[in-house]
Nucleic acid binder design. Structure first.
Lengths: 210, 210
DNA sequence: TTGAAACATGAGTCAACATTCAGGTTCCGA
DNA sequence: TCGGAACCTGAATGTTGACTCATGTTTCAA
């Protein structure tokens, strides 16, 4: 446990998924149950038997579909990455400029976290359970983000940046914390006004400082 | 394990610390060793025996000073909170306005994380091991931060904010992520230029957008 | 000097899993 | 209708590691 370093040779041989309908259903049940359990109790307080009970299958069945506890976990993190990026892309599609996109993105992120509390917890815990998966999550995210910024710059909406990497991480950090603070700890406050306040403070501060 | 909810009745009776010199030395050794081990291997991969070996004391000695594994961990988180706030306060003392303070703060934070990688990891892992301690860490931090903003506002350096809470969390998030990205994952890049890029992007974006 | 409080110790207890395995059951193409 | 592939199962295995405790040793105030 924990001596995995991402580039294991043993990882290669992936059974290419369930062949039958029944198998697919079982796999989905296991994934759903795993997400629920990991998200609620956390990785270490979740036993495989919790997952299989949640899925309504026998204990041994788990190992028909996954090689280890960590493997499901990684699968869930990767899945969440794709889902989150998708939600972000959708939500910012209609924005007229980068600042609006930023605001919409933050709001969408808070809302997304709110409606996927359990799953988002998994992403965060991945930092300790599956660091490689965690880094991939944010690196992929950052790459997409950087591309957005570059496009906005070429449209003249923001200044060209050689510092995009820094910007992107600062912005991801802001969203991430707002997601925790207003998506999980306090899910009451209106997400639109939080997003407005957050994206507003960029220029508020700058205006006053100049 | 993990059914602690912060307001336990059993927590009250704290032995008020070691009485003798020898005791104090042993306690410190245990705390240092615990910080080292938790910070390096993580909470779950650290055994009490790792800590006591690192401290050069017998296994049983651990339980002379702490009621449980979680208790040391919590103590370390609290300690880190105090140390981090102190470092922040120091570093921003000479700033002439809020924007400069922000820049200095970010830089100081990255540097602080760099020189306390192991301990900072503990703070982050607290989110899952001792959520209550984690929330306290950031709530206390946020309170101090908010106060800084309020003072800056009264000096007219930034606009009055009813949205300080949001601002603060966005800023903490930015710092936190930059701390991970440039303090831990990439400890080479010059922290001063990262901080400059981050605090600069506030007004860059605003200027271009207006 | 002395005895009791403070401190130190590590073998032993005990419960909690992750993972395996040997023996089923169900599905489906031929 | 049949045989093998796919799938299912849960008792058994083995390890790990937090925590206890009975028994020392050290300190220091009186």
């Amino acid at each position: 446990m924990s001596q995995h370093s991402g580039s294991d040779p043993e990882v290669a041989e992936e059974r290419s998924g369930p062949k039958t309908e029944r198998g697919k259903r079982t796999l989905r049940r296991l994934l759903d149950a795993a997400g629920e359990e990991f998200g609620t109790r956390g990785y270490h307080d979740t036993a495989i038997s919790n997952i299989t009970q949640g899925a309504g299958v026998g204990l041994g069945t788990f190992y028909v579909y996954f090689k280890s506890k960590e493997e499901v976990f990684r699968a869930l993190v990767a899945d969440m990455g794709a889902r989150t990026r998708h939600a972000m892309t959708e939500s910012t599609r209609g924005a007229h400029d980068r600042l609006e996109a930023e605001r919409l993105g933050i709001q969408a992120f808070i809302d997304f976290v709110r409606s996927h509390k359990a799953l988002y917890r998994i992403v965060m815990e991945a930092q300790f359970v599956a660091p490689e998966a965690y880094r991939d999550y944010y690196r992929t995210f950052a790459a997409a983000y950087r591309q957005q910024l570059a496009q906005a710059a070429s449209r003249g909406e923001i200044s060209e940046g050689q510092d995009d990497e820094v910007r992107v991480w600062a912005l991801m950090g802001a969203s991430s914390f707002l997601g925790i603070r207003y998506g999980i700890w306090d899910a009451e406050t209106d997400s639109a006004s939080v997003a407005a306040a957050a994206s507003g403070s960029h220029d508020q501060q700058a205006r006053a400082a100049s």
